[in-house]
């Protein structure tokens, strides 16, 4: 849990209902100042709904949300310090990227036009073409540029890489790191492609079916799960009394993912048993945790959680 003293966002028991469906189900967490957060989860997990409510673009059904210690709704002290360009952002008809950037310069006090110009060059964005005629990637670039150059105290990036090619994605990540280092601010990056952004994140919040599954420092999670591979009997012996996230069997062999940090003694034990230990990436861990949660919900295996993987 983050230190609530420097929390810029506090969420308590937040629920959002669309008719009978719960988009957010009793969600509580806080966001500390000047960290890069990953808001991770499958498509439709509730990420955009959550960000919309935090920015007062949407309305909660019940619960408590405060941003900079106040309710964000129609709040002139809060809103100007937030930037949230949604993944499906709409722009005025006949607007060009240039128009959108000029608008942003009117509303974001920290707007850096020179930085925006550099980003336009790097992304090779045609600034005089109408936004409705841009490709998906160019549309994403418009949102990314506004998000970066606005330098808002809290900046949300909603699946910012959609349609961007590998070079453009890397450009975005590089610019984000550099600019964040120079102008520290709170960044919330929503993503279902975890591998790509994992190393940029300081804190990870995993959401699934409207509920928070993980809320941890990224560094604390790294190394907290391992895959143990070897003869099934020996693997079972080793993983007994450990929290098993995932099991795969092939003949007399087993591959089991367990959570928990391994001590040196445990590593020695695994070595003595002739077992292989493999570290688990943040993405695999999120996938396993999400799947484990789904399984406990429905009492069955839900392979669709695999859609989180980058190689779908």
């Amino acid at each position: 849990m983050s230190d609530s003293n420097n929390a810029v966002i506090e969420v308590r028991n937040l629920t959002k209902r669309y008719r009978s469906e719960k988009a957010l189900d009793d969600v509580s967490f806080s966001i500390a100042a000047n960290k890069i957060y990953g808001l991770l989860g499958r498509n439709g997990a509730g990420k955009t709904t959550l960000m919309s409510i935090l920015t007062a673009q949407n309305f909660k059904t019940s619960g408590h949300v405060s941003v900079f210690g106040q309710s964000p709704y129609e709040n002139e002290k809060v809103l100007p310090r937030i930037c949230f360009i949604r993944e499906s952002q709409k722009y005025p008809d006949d607007f060009t990227p240039q128009h959108a950037f000029r608008s942003a310069s009117l509303f974001f006090a920290n707007w850096d036009q020179a930085f925006a110009d550099r980003l336009v060059q790097d992304f090779q964005l045609p600034v005089k073409r109408r936004i409705k005629k841009l490709s998906r990637g160019q549309l994403s670039a418009v949102g990314v540029i506004i998000g970066l150059a606005s330098r808002a105290d809290i900046t949300f990036f909603d699946e910012p890489y959609l349609g961007l090619d590998a070079v453009a994605r890397q450009l975005f990540y590089d610019h984000l790191i550099e600019d964040y280092a120079e102008f520290p601010r709170t960044v919330i990056l929503s993503s279902h492609l975890i591998d790509e952004v994992a190393n940029l994140l300081e804190h990870v919040i995993v959401i699934d079916q409207g509920r928070i599954l993980m809320d941890d420092d990224a560094e604390d999670i790294r190394g907290t799960a391992h895959t143990v591979v070897g003869p099934a009997a020996k693997v079972d012996q080793f993983v007994a009394r450990r929290e098993v996230l995932h099991t795969e069997r092939m003949g007399s062999f087993a591959s089991v993912t367990v959570s928990g940090v391994l001590t040196d003694a445990q590593r020695d034990e695994a070595m003595a048993l002739g077992l292989e230990l493999a570290p688990v990436s943040l993405q695999q861990l999120v996938v396993r945790t999400t799947m484990a949660a789904t399984e406990s919900d429905f009492g069955g295996t839900d392979r669709s959680a695999e859609t989180l993987e980058v190689s779908k």
Binding site: F84, Q89, K90
Partner: peptide, 16 residues
């Protein structure tokens, strides 16, 4: 138009 397109954009500009 100002409502269907400009309003959503103004929300992204953090306008109340």
């Amino acid at each position: 138009q100002s409502l269907t397109l400009t309003f959503p954009f103004s929300q992204a500009m953090s306008v109340s």
